[in-house]
Design a protein around this nucleic acid. Structure first.
Lengths: 200, 200
DNA sequence: TCGTGATTTGACCAACTGGTCAAACCAACG
DNA sequence: CGTTGGTTTGACCAGTTGGTCAAATCACGA
């Protein structure tokens, strides 16, 4: 029998989560402070703690939401579709995720960099299971000669690495590219890279 | 007329830098504490501050050392060598760097993730100049038809992304691979990926 | 308009932070 | 052995941290 959230609750909770995403994704959990988050959300610190019981709680909610969005594209990889098309679509979806949700990407990166203390268990169970399952599909395509012989795990790693690079290393990418837009060129390159790799 | 460092100075400075690398690479600058570093180095906090004037100073020394090692492999890319061989060698050198110096890779990743406040200027000048120069070489090879048509910048990004992924996302890689060793498979995959991409 | 529950705040706390300092300690060389 | 300069430490400090609490304020339905 939980009460439905009021208008103000919705607004403030959303503001806090967005502010938390800003701050945590830049400084990591330990490097972020409640004052920073409260400021960014336009609230006082005690007021913030009226909506979330602790710093940890904000971080946890953000991580949980993140993991869903993050694993969705891979789940959508369909074993009954056309192999090359499926893998290319996955890679492009992942790249779009980096473009549209860079803060989420950096939050994830920060968590992993710090040794994934809060999600290591999920990585070893849910993520591993998902990757193994989709990896098996790719392995099947590979064995059947429908794509080139590749190690599915490293193929997936390479897609993760390349696409997330544009969000996580944004500053570096922009420093090197100057004022050129990163994502158009990245999409073209991504397309060529995997089309060539996967062609038997 | 600076005096030569004593035996003890050498030992302790090295211990502090190694400890600082451990801690900073995991928690970032703001998330790391002098107590952590002092503990890891086996010294008391005041003792640590006898060798380095501040937390910032330790971090700065580490970043400076890092940047040298980090840009070296790209500098070695030789415009007079065989195009495919040169690029492949660069990629493999970079992968070896991730395998042998994962802490340095994570220190760099942390710095970039946090917006590169301490090295943004260097990225925009030194790094950009280096990448532009080597990019021009690759562009030349591409124009001459000696390798396939690729955007040199994104090619370099993809090499960075893929190789650093194994150091920076180590926890995730190991969670997914189970007990399989990451780097052997990565090297094989890397080889195939770029050989196929670069072949005209 | 009033009452009630939701919301906000200022004052506060203990633990931790980066950093200082004088005093104690120790290594080594004459 | 003594002394001199490098080394280590405990006590300390001011500012920051995550978090609490009672009191004040506000929104809104009756």
């Amino acid at each position: 029998m939980t009460k439905p959230p009021t208008r103000i609750q919705k607004r403030n909770r959303a503001a806090i989560l967005s502010a938390g995403l800003d701050v945590f994704s830049q400084f990591g959990f330990r490097g972020s402070t409640l004052d920073q988050i409260a400021d960014a959300a336009g609230l006082s610190k005690p007021n913030l703690l009226y909506y979330f019981p602790s710093k940890e709680a904000i971080h946890t909610v953000l991580l949980e939401r993140l993991l869903e969005t993050w694993l969705d594209p891979l789940k959508a990889l369909d074993g009954k579709g056309d192999p090359v098309k499926e893998i290319m679509a996955y890679a492009q979806r992942k790249l779009a995720l980096s473009r549209d949700y860079p803060r989420e990407s950096r939050l994830f990166a920060n968590e992993i960099l710090q040794g994934a203390p809060r999600i290591e268990a999920i990585l070893q169970t849910d993520l591993k299971a998902l990757v193994d399952a989709k990896g098996a599909i790719i392995q099947g395509w590979s064995d059947a000669g429908r794509i080139a012989r590749v190690d599915p795990h490293h193929l997936i790693f390479s897609i993760w690495a390349f696409t997330q690079h544009y969000a996580d290393f944004d500053v570096q990418v922009r420093a090197v590219l100057g004022d050129k837009a990163p994502y158009d060129g990245a999409a073209v390159f991504l397309d060529m890279l995997y089309k060539k790799l996967l062609t038997p």
